[in-house]
Nucleic acid binder design. Structure first.
Lengths: 189, 189
DNA sequence: CTTTTATGAATGAAGG
DNA sequence: CCTTCATTCATAAAAG
């Protein structure tokens, strides 16, 4: 399988993603708008499909196998909670704001809020925040990993693999522009 | 904006923000989530408007990254690390040595050693051991307890089609696909 | 080129 | 809080 032959980052050695405050703010607003639109669309579809229980139109793969569904009780093999996209969005935002200090009371509130978008429990929220925090920390560690003397990359007599490292340095080129979500909602203010 | 991220780089009064890889990843994921929502909504809408008695809710897990698989342009998505043969040998040997409890310090050492044979990060090593152990355990699990009068083990309860057709025939008529990540802000200097 | 398999990576949950 | 485990997802590699 060929890799992207178009090297997009061969200009200069170091390439970092730099955004101005203005761009940051614009992007943030756009994402917020996007979130709102999606929520509304989901809600709309829920209304439309109310004529017959469509079951879990759950966005995301929270599908449960219809195996052994005889009877009514569901003890399917899947027990692991999976946040819906909307829930994830909310959680991410809270994490960004709350600076990782989830108090017990806060957990209850969040759970209540997220229940509107799917099945969730307080434990789920708690775990999510804990995991998120731990993961962020670890990412920071890795980000500033001491570059060991990568002297030479032997082996691979031929077939030059572009780069196989995905965790050390920035390798993915983010590319997002102003999503003109729908026609003409771009104006924020 | 939240400047408590510790990313306070006010060097020379430059009003720029440098996104860390983590932030980039979060952003990418969020956008991907929205794109996924939109795709599914479109799909759902198509189903609702075409046939009333659709043979079932179609919740295939289209989890492909719309940012990467968006038809046309290709960015340097995430490439996963692939161990070189030499690295694999070393890893296998270490695994067999009974050092089945790779501590953080050990991980560092191993990473240092392996980096002499190719690009690798601590995360890669960590994941490799985790996966290795889990796989071994899984294999053992399957091997044991196959007989007990109790058959009907689900073995693999997999969804009918875990793979969604890429529809790469360029004949895909979608009203509007994902938020259109065409021209981006590759690098704002 | 398409389908299948092997495996690196992501993540929810549990343990300490 | 931090570490570890189990499960699942995505994709490079292999098979057809």
């Amino acid at each position: 399988m060929e890799q992207d032959e178009g090297n997009n980052n061969t200009n200069g050695g170091m390439f970092v993603k730099v955004m101005t405050d203005e761009q940051m703010e614009v992007l943030r607003k756009q994402i917020a708008i996007y979130a709102t639109i999606c929520e509304q669309l989901v809600d709309l579809h829920k209304s439309l499909t109310s004529h017959h229980d469509l079951g879990g139109v759950r966005l995301g793969n929270l599908y449960s196998d219809p195996l052994v569904t005889s009877g009514g009780h569901k003890f399917s093999g899947r027990q692991r909670w999976t946040p819906t996209p909307v829930q994830l969005q909310i959680l991410e935002r809270l994490f960004e704001q709350g600076n990782g200090t989830p108090s017990k009371q806060k957990i209850k509130e969040i759970t209540s809020e997220l229940s509107q978008h799917g099945q969730i429990s307080e434990t789920n929220v708690y775990n999510w925040f804990q995991n998120r925090r731990a993961r962020s920390k670890r990412k920071q560690q890795v980000s500033s990993a001491p570059n060991n003397g990568e002297s030479e990359v032997e082996t691979e007599v031929e077939s030059p693999k572009p780069q196989q490292n995905s965790a050390s340095t920035a390798d993915d080129n983010m590319c997002f522009q102003n999503p003109n979500v729908s026609s003409g909602i771009s104006s924020v203010d």
